[in-house]
Design a protein around this nucleic acid. Structure first.
Lengths: 233, 233
DNA sequence: TTCGTTAGTAGAACAGTGTTCGTTTATACG
DNA sequence: CGTATAAACGAACACTGTTCTACTAACGAA
């Protein structure tokens, strides 16, 4: 007799699931991050996470107070990937750049995660440790407290904003979109936009790395100049 | 006989509304902006706008392709409020700051509108005119094309990110939240966070204006330094 | 004026979101 | 073992942006 492949009866499926799979916060955060890596932030929903964990969305709320807290945790988890050297105040400028590059590197590794870093009060342990490192470096270098205090916060803001913009540009990096935008700008009315149109393709030169390096160059040179001014009565 | 106030019969109400109120894009944008002013960006939905216009949300789609386009239009409408002087290349540094202050001023006047400015490809006429002004100024001042091209974009990014962060802080500006955050940071473990804890309240000094002025000071000084370097072979 | 076409509006519905609430299940503790 | 607590579950809520179809209004030509 031919063996017949019957669907398993529903009453039998239950026995496989008697043991509840235990959730914990770290697991939720890791799954959330994986979803962001694959689908971007807009692909992340509580249901999506629950689906991956084979549970229901309501179960997540036993471990996080809501989506906002979850995003805090995910961001902090990412910033924890930053690797920083021993602070060397004699080389503070190069080290501020290294700090910024590290911030960019870890965020870039996770799609559009940088979007979460914006407009958020820094409370995670890794986020704070990163700030601590920078503040320690700048104090060691003898920069005025006012400069140190501001730089700690504004540095993260500038890097996060840049990396977020970069992630948007990467998402729209197909040659068609790029050509369309460039075409649009280069064909603006020259009487209204003489400088944009005459600059032409120079507006679009340099890649993301170069632009980022320029930005942190400007930031660090500016810090140095303002700090020097602050120290000259 | 006492006059009786009867509800108007339903068949009679229709006659008042035979004339359809005509929507147009500008009206939609203005209403959207007013809702943002009063309720913030999270208070803005297509239904909310339609409610204010006494129509249905589907009607909006005859005038805008979707919410994203609407937000583009709202932002451009806001940036149109910027007032800029005649460019004077001899004073380019002060004028870059004036440009940044104007950007901040108009965005600050509209709650958390700055959030929309982030991660957005600049295509609105006012956004482009603002960039055109800045680029024209910097070219007039003889800055290298590379510097000009980067500064146009990064300037807007820095200002937008700052103003957005500022709007978040203003939304959380009640003394209780502020005290809670300060308390949290000042009571971190000193062995892990020696610099943050020893800086103490210096971390929270200065208001938003001062921090913004610091940021644009750094940005402009940095631009000047990098530009000077670029011009020295 | 009438009629046909086009553009705009309206309403229902779809697919999705974050979250709450009450119930059930599992775990921890005495 | 019994009780209390914590975690998980499922249904439902209130809301979102958008699409689709039908209706209405406006416009232009005859």
């Amino acid at each position: 007799m031919t063996e017949v492949d019957l669907p398993e009866p529903p009453w039998r499926r239950r026995s496989k699931k008697t043991r509840r799979q235990v959730l914990d916060r770290d697991r939720i955060v890791e799954v959330a991050l994986r979803i962001i890596d694959e689908e971007g932030i807009d692909g992340l929903s509580m249901r999506r996470i629950a689906e991956e964990l084979d549970t229901g969305p309501a179960s997540l709320y036993a471990h996080v107070s809501g989506k906002e807290e979850l995003l805090d945790l995910v961001l902090d988890r990412v910033i924890g990937e930053i690797e920083l050297p021993e602070p060397d105040p004699a080389r503070w400028q190069e080290q501020v750049k290294a700090w910024a590059r590290e911030g960019r590197r870890v965020m870039k590794a996770h799609r559009d995660i940088a979007r979460i870093s914006l407009g958020r009060i820094p409370t995670g342990v890794n986020v704070l440790r990163s700030a601590e490192w920078l503040i320690g470096l700048l104090r060691g270098a003898g920069l005025p407290d006012r400069v140190v205090a501001y730089a700690g916060d504004l540095g993260a803001l500038v890097v996060g904003a840049y990396v977020f913009e970069e992630s948007v540009e990467e998402a729209n990096a197909d040659p068609e979109t790029y050509a369309m935008v460039a075409d649009y700008m280069l064909n603006l009315p020259p009487d209204l936009f003489p400088h944009i149109t005459s600059m032409g393709t120079a507006l679009f030169e340099g890649g993301a790395d170069e632009r980022f390096e320029f930005l942190i160059d400007v930031f660090v040179a500016g810090l140095a100049a303002v700090a020097a001014r602050d120290q000259t009565p």
